[in-house]
Simulated assay, not measured.
Amino acid sequence: MTESRKNNSWLKPALEFGPLVLFFVVFMRFRDRTFTLGGTEYTGFIVATLVFIPVLVLSTLALWRLTGRLSPMQIATLVLVVVFGGLSVWLNDPKFFKMKPTIIYLIFAGLLGLSLILRRNWLELVMSEALPMTAEGWRVLSGRMTVLFLGLAGANEIVWRTMSETAWVNFKTFGLTIIMVVFFVLNAKLFERHALPKDAD
Protein backbone atom coordinates (compact mmCIF):
# COMPACT_ATOMS: atom_id res chain seq x y z
CA MET A 1 0.00 0.00 0.00
CA THR A 2 1.35 3.41 -0.96
CA GLU A 3 1.81 6.20 1.54
CA SER A 4 -1.03 8.22 -0.04
CA ARG A 5 -3.46 5.33 0.35
CA LYS A 6 -2.48 4.94 4.00
CA ASN A 7 -3.12 8.63 4.55
CA ASN A 8 -6.49 8.45 2.77
CA SER A 9 -7.57 5.52 4.96
CA TRP A 10 -7.69 7.75 8.04
CA LEU A 11 -8.08 11.16 6.43
CA LYS A 12 -11.46 10.48 4.80
CA PRO A 13 -13.26 9.37 8.01
CA ALA A 14 -11.52 12.19 9.89
CA LEU A 15 -12.95 14.71 7.44
CA GLU A 16 -16.40 13.11 7.57
CA PHE A 17 -16.75 12.84 11.34
CA GLY A 18 -14.33 15.52 12.52
CA PRO A 19 -16.77 18.46 12.28
CA LEU A 20 -19.43 16.60 14.29
CA VAL A 21 -16.91 15.63 16.97
CA LEU A 22 -15.70 19.24 17.13
CA PHE A 23 -19.29 20.46 17.52
CA PHE A 24 -19.76 18.03 20.42
CA VAL A 25 -16.51 19.09 22.12
CA VAL A 26 -17.21 22.82 21.78
CA PHE A 27 -20.77 22.42 23.02
CA MET A 28 -19.75 20.35 26.05
CA ARG A 29 -17.03 22.89 26.86
CA PHE A 30 -19.27 25.96 26.67
CA ARG A 31 -22.81 24.66 27.26
CA ASP A 32 -23.13 26.41 30.62
CA ARG A 33 -21.69 29.72 29.44
CA THR A 34 -23.06 32.68 27.53
CA PHE A 35 -21.13 35.02 25.27
CA THR A 36 -21.99 38.63 24.49
CA LEU A 37 -21.27 39.82 20.97
CA GLY A 38 -22.53 43.17 19.72
CA GLY A 39 -24.78 43.50 22.74
CA THR A 40 -26.46 40.11 22.13
CA GLU A 41 -26.03 37.10 24.38
CA TYR A 42 -25.30 33.74 22.73
CA THR A 43 -25.42 30.33 24.40
CA GLY A 44 -22.76 27.67 24.09
CA PHE A 45 -25.01 25.83 21.63
CA ILE A 46 -25.02 28.78 19.23
CA VAL A 47 -21.25 29.16 19.58
CA ALA A 48 -20.78 25.46 18.79
CA THR A 49 -23.02 25.87 15.74
CA LEU A 50 -21.04 28.91 14.63
CA VAL A 51 -17.84 26.85 14.80
CA PHE A 52 -19.41 23.81 13.14
CA ILE A 53 -20.61 25.53 9.95
CA PRO A 54 -17.27 26.75 8.49
CA VAL A 55 -15.48 23.59 9.63
CA LEU A 56 -18.05 21.43 7.81
CA VAL A 57 -17.71 23.58 4.68
CA LEU A 58 -13.92 23.22 4.72
CA SER A 59 -14.00 19.48 5.45
CA THR A 60 -16.54 18.89 2.64
CA LEU A 61 -14.36 20.81 0.19
CA ALA A 62 -11.37 18.76 1.35
CA LEU A 63 -13.34 15.54 0.81
CA TRP A 64 -14.25 16.66 -2.68
CA ARG A 65 -10.60 17.42 -3.40
CA LEU A 66 -9.52 14.08 -1.92
CA THR A 67 -12.09 11.80 -3.58
CA GLY A 68 -13.11 13.82 -6.62
CA ARG A 69 -16.82 13.63 -5.81
CA LEU A 70 -19.45 14.09 -3.12
CA SER A 71 -22.48 11.93 -2.38
CA PRO A 72 -25.99 13.43 -2.54
CA MET A 73 -26.24 13.05 1.24
CA GLN A 74 -23.04 15.02 1.79
CA ILE A 75 -24.22 17.80 -0.51
CA ALA A 76 -27.68 17.94 1.09
CA THR A 77 -26.17 17.93 4.58
CA LEU A 78 -23.82 20.78 3.71
CA VAL A 79 -26.60 22.93 2.21
CA LEU A 80 -29.00 22.36 5.09
CA VAL A 81 -26.31 22.95 7.73
CA VAL A 82 -25.38 26.26 6.13
CA VAL A 83 -29.04 27.31 5.78
CA PHE A 84 -30.48 26.12 9.09
CA GLY A 85 -27.28 26.54 11.10
CA GLY A 86 -26.99 30.03 9.66
CA LEU A 87 -30.57 30.80 10.67
CA SER A 88 -29.89 29.59 14.21
CA VAL A 89 -26.86 31.87 14.50
CA TRP A 90 -28.48 34.84 12.74
CA LEU A 91 -31.71 34.66 14.74
CA ASN A 92 -30.00 33.36 17.90
CA ASP A 93 -32.47 30.47 17.98
CA PRO A 94 -31.18 26.86 18.31
CA LYS A 95 -34.39 25.26 17.03
CA PHE A 96 -33.52 25.79 13.36
CA PHE A 97 -30.31 23.78 13.66
CA LYS A 98 -32.08 21.10 15.69
CA MET A 99 -34.70 20.72 12.95
CA LYS A 100 -32.04 20.11 10.30
CA PRO A 101 -31.71 16.31 10.80
CA THR A 102 -35.49 15.94 10.60
CA ILE A 103 -35.58 17.70 7.24
CA ILE A 104 -32.63 15.70 5.88
CA TYR A 105 -34.22 12.38 6.87
CA LEU A 106 -37.61 13.35 5.46
CA ILE A 107 -35.99 14.35 2.16
CA PHE A 108 -34.21 11.03 1.82
CA ALA A 109 -37.25 9.04 2.93
CA GLY A 110 -39.25 10.86 0.27
CA LEU A 111 -36.65 10.24 -2.43
CA LEU A 112 -36.35 6.56 -1.59
CA GLY A 113 -40.12 6.17 -1.43
CA LEU A 114 -40.42 7.84 -4.84
CA SER A 115 -37.74 5.55 -6.26
CA LEU A 116 -39.80 2.54 -5.16
CA ILE A 117 -42.93 3.94 -6.79
CA LEU A 118 -41.06 4.68 -10.03
CA ARG A 119 -39.20 1.35 -9.86
CA ARG A 120 -35.82 3.05 -9.98
CA ASN A 121 -32.77 1.98 -7.95
CA TRP A 122 -31.58 5.45 -6.94
CA LEU A 123 -29.96 4.05 -3.81
CA GLU A 124 -27.84 1.79 -6.01
CA LEU A 125 -26.42 4.83 -7.79
CA VAL A 126 -25.08 6.10 -4.47
CA MET A 127 -23.98 2.90 -2.75
CA SER A 128 -23.29 0.36 -5.51
CA GLU A 129 -19.51 0.53 -5.14
CA ALA A 130 -19.68 -0.27 -1.43
CA LEU A 131 -22.51 -2.81 -1.69
CA PRO A 132 -22.76 -4.57 -5.07
CA MET A 133 -26.19 -6.26 -5.02
CA THR A 134 -28.98 -7.42 -7.28
CA ALA A 135 -31.86 -5.12 -8.23
CA GLU A 136 -34.12 -7.00 -5.82
CA GLY A 137 -31.65 -6.44 -3.01
CA TRP A 138 -31.65 -2.71 -3.67
CA ARG A 139 -35.44 -2.65 -3.76
CA VAL A 140 -35.68 -4.31 -0.35
CA LEU A 141 -32.95 -2.10 1.13
CA SER A 142 -34.63 1.03 -0.26
CA GLY A 143 -37.88 0.09 1.46
CA ARG A 144 -36.15 -0.58 4.77
CA MET A 145 -34.15 2.63 4.60
CA THR A 146 -37.30 4.61 3.85
CA VAL A 147 -38.78 3.32 7.09
CA LEU A 148 -35.48 3.97 8.90
CA PHE A 149 -35.30 7.61 7.77
CA LEU A 150 -38.92 8.22 8.74
CA GLY A 151 -38.20 6.75 12.17
CA LEU A 152 -35.07 8.87 12.60
CA ALA A 153 -36.97 12.01 11.62
CA GLY A 154 -39.62 11.25 14.23
CA ALA A 155 -37.01 10.40 16.86
CA ASN A 156 -35.15 13.66 16.24
CA GLU A 157 -38.35 15.67 16.65
CA ILE A 158 -39.18 13.92 19.93
CA VAL A 159 -35.69 14.40 21.37
CA TRP A 160 -35.18 18.07 20.55
CA ARG A 161 -38.71 19.08 21.51
CA THR A 162 -38.93 17.17 24.80
CA MET A 163 -35.37 16.83 26.10
CA SER A 164 -32.46 19.06 27.06
CA GLU A 165 -29.91 20.46 24.62
CA THR A 166 -27.28 18.14 26.07
CA ALA A 167 -29.52 15.14 25.44
CA TRP A 168 -30.09 16.24 21.85
CA VAL A 169 -26.37 16.81 21.19
CA ASN A 170 -25.60 13.34 22.56
CA PHE A 171 -28.37 11.87 20.42
CA LYS A 172 -27.12 13.63 17.29
CA THR A 173 -23.46 12.80 17.89
CA PHE A 174 -23.73 9.22 19.10
CA GLY A 175 -27.34 8.01 18.94
CA LEU A 176 -27.93 8.57 15.23
CA THR A 177 -24.55 7.06 14.32
CA ILE A 178 -25.15 3.97 16.46
CA ILE A 179 -28.63 3.47 14.98
CA MET A 180 -27.23 3.59 11.44
CA VAL A 181 -24.46 1.11 12.29
CA VAL A 182 -26.92 -1.28 13.95
CA PHE A 183 -29.25 -0.98 10.94
CA PHE A 184 -26.56 -2.09 8.50
CA VAL A 185 -25.39 -4.88 10.82
CA LEU A 186 -28.95 -6.21 11.03
CA ASN A 187 -29.16 -6.17 7.24
CA ALA A 188 -25.99 -8.24 6.79
CA LYS A 189 -28.05 -11.26 5.68
CA LEU A 190 -29.72 -9.15 3.00
CA PHE A 191 -26.34 -8.04 1.65
CA GLU A 192 -25.09 -11.62 1.65
CA ARG A 193 -28.23 -13.05 0.03
CA HIS A 194 -28.32 -10.55 -2.82
CA ALA A 195 -24.58 -9.98 -3.30
CA LEU A 196 -23.34 -10.01 -6.87
CA PRO A 197 -20.60 -12.56 -7.67
CA LYS A 198 -17.14 -11.02 -7.54
CA ASP A 199 -15.09 -10.71 -10.71
CA ALA A 200 -12.22 -13.10 -11.15
CA ASP A 201 -9.82 -10.18 -10.90
Rank of each mutant, 00 (worst) to 15 (best):
E3G: 05
S4F: 13
K6Q: 14
N8R: 08
L11Y: 00
K12S: 05
P13V: 04
P13L: 01
L15M: 08
F17Q: 09
F17G: 13
G18T: 10
V21H: 01
L22P: 04
L22S: 03
F24E: 07
V25R: 00
V26R: 03
F27A: 08
M28Q: 11
R31W: 09
R31Y: 08
R31G: 12
R33M: 15
R33I: 13
R33H: 14
T36R: 07
T36A: 14
E41D: 09
E41H: 07
E41T: 02
E41N: 09
Y42S: 13
Y42V: 03
G44V: 08
A48V: 05
T49M: 05
T49H: 08
V51C: 15
I53M: 12
P54D: 00
L56A: 11
L56C: 15
L56S: 11
V57E: 00
W64L: 13
R65T: 05
R65M: 03
L66N: 12
S71D: 11
S71F: 05
P72L: 11
Q74F: 00
A76L: 14
A76G: 10
T77S: 04
T77W: 03
L78T: 01
V79S: 04
L80C: 00
L80T: 04
V83Y: 07
G85E: 06
G85V: 00
G86V: 02
S88C: 01
V89D: 05
N92M: 07
D93T: 15
D93A: 15
K95F: 08
F96V: 07
F97R: 09
K98P: 01
P101H: 13
I103P: 12
I107F: 02
F108G: 06
A109K: 13
A109N: 04
G110T: 09
G110Q: 14
L111Y: 07
L111C: 15
S115P: 01
L116N: 08
L116R: 09
L116K: 04
I117T: 15
L118M: 10
L118C: 08
W122R: 12
L123M: 06
E124L: 11
L125N: 11
V126G: 02
S128G: 03
M133E: 05
T134R: 03
T134E: 14
A135M: 07
G137M: 09
G137K: 08
G137S: 05
R139A: 10
L141K: 07
S142I: 02
M145Q: 00
T146L: 10
V147P: 15
V147W: 14
F149L: 12
L150W: 14
L150R: 10
G151T: 01
G151A: 03
A153T: 13
I158D: 00
R161L: 09
R161Y: 06
A167Q: 06
W168A: 03
W168M: 07
V169P: 10
V169E: 12
F171T: 02
K172P: 02
T173E: 00
T173V: 09
F174Y: 10
T177E: 03
I178M: 12
I179R: 06
M180P: 01
V181Y: 08
V182Q: 06
F183T: 02
F184V: 12
F184Y: 10
K189T: 14
K189C: 08
L190T: 01
E192R: 14
R193P: 03
H194S: 11
H194T: 11
K198T: 15
D199M: 10
D199K: 15
A200V: 15
